[in-house]
Write a protein that binds this DNA or RNA. Structure first.
Lengths: 193, 193
DNA sequence: CCTACCGATCGGTAGG
DNA sequence: CCTACCGATCGGTAGG
């Protein structure tokens, strides 16, 4: 375990682990404090509520995802190359933040308004990055015609599980994960003659 | 709302809705009782504990999934046809039981031992049905060589989200959902020249 | 299926 | 960051 340089960050790290393990409602402020080794009341000098901790995790992850896509967007690549880069960047964020990802994907629904609406809007905006690439690919004839909403959801739902079996002793590197996934997404599993 | 023929079943239905909405830890026995219109204590004459309700939901869904695969297994089809049938059957169970599916996929981890281990074993056994079809497809040259564990996880993770956007006004029929998904899985999104 | 109730635990505050 | 504590709510039981 690394030195405790910043207690605020340590609280977030521990909260990610415990929210992931027990869910947001199932993990208590006492659990978090106990794991760190301080009194429960002490948490409130760093975060004003339990939900504030959840907000920090969820919006912090959202920021990471957007940040990771910045490098992709600028490049002038073909749609399928662009999609591969975007997926690789997305996967890297998940794999590098497995615990936070689990919270991000499962526990965002415990946010209260107005955070909840803000979060949903951010997610939609993020998904639209990928939607645009798909659309461009179809228009330029690189991708076949398809139900774009369906494909978009399928991409995210399959890739967003990676935080889970990364844990299950799958020690494939992000680049390889991305390669495997894009091969599947681009060409499918059938042999083509 | 249908007539209340069986209170035991009604409790399960309501629990599915509330566990899905608030999570297992977040939905209380009082919530369930209030939704039905009885006193909280009355629930305990039907189920001996909150976890007993969760067990009923999780193992009931497991049974539905296995039942749905029975019709598939018997048939002597080619691997890709068999996989398509298996996926369609799987999707149908999810779409027909959207609330219970949400609980099945998210809240099983709140099961205590020994139910937890039993559940995990059942899931593994169920996944092996699909693993076998994949393996057979590769051996007979219908499917290309691939990381089977990776593909298996990707299939389940993408298909298991269907309960979620079925809700989001997507009114595609299960057969069409299955067709869309298998097209994607078999051939990918790239145009093949 | 209800009334009445239990001990445990929850998120959070006051004050230092 | 701690001690001391609050009212609210939790899963569950006794007894009818």
């Amino acid at each position: 375990m690394a030195e405790v340089i910043n207690r605020k960050e340590q609280i977030i790290e521990v909260a990610c682990i415990l929210f992931r393990e027990k869910g947001y409602a199932g993990a208590s402020m006492r659990d978090i404090a106990g794991y760190i080794g301080i009194e429960p009341a002490s948490l409130y000098s760093h975060y004003k509520s339990k939900e504030h901790i959840l907000q920090t995790i969820c919006f912090g992850m959202a920021e990471d995802f957007f940040e990771a896509q910045k490098a992709v967007d600028i490049q002038t690549l073909l749609p399928h190359q662009k999609l591969e880069k975007a997926i690789e960047a997305h996967i890297r964020v998940i794999v590098d933040n497995a615990d936070a990802s689990a919270v991000f994907f499962h526990d965002w629904r415990y946010l209260n308004e107005p955070s909840l609406s803000t979060f949903k809007a951010l997610r939609k905006k993020y998904e639209s990055i990928f939607a645009e690439i798909l659309k461009e690919g179809i228009e330029t004839g690189v991708f076949r015609n398809m139900d774009q909403a369906f494909t978009l959801q399928t991409i995210f739902s399959s890739v967003n599980w990676l935080y889970d079996w990364q844990k299950a002793a799958m020690l494939i590197k992000p680049e390889q994960l991305s390669k495997n996934f894009c091969h599947l997404l681009f060409s499918g599993i059938k042999k083509h003659f």
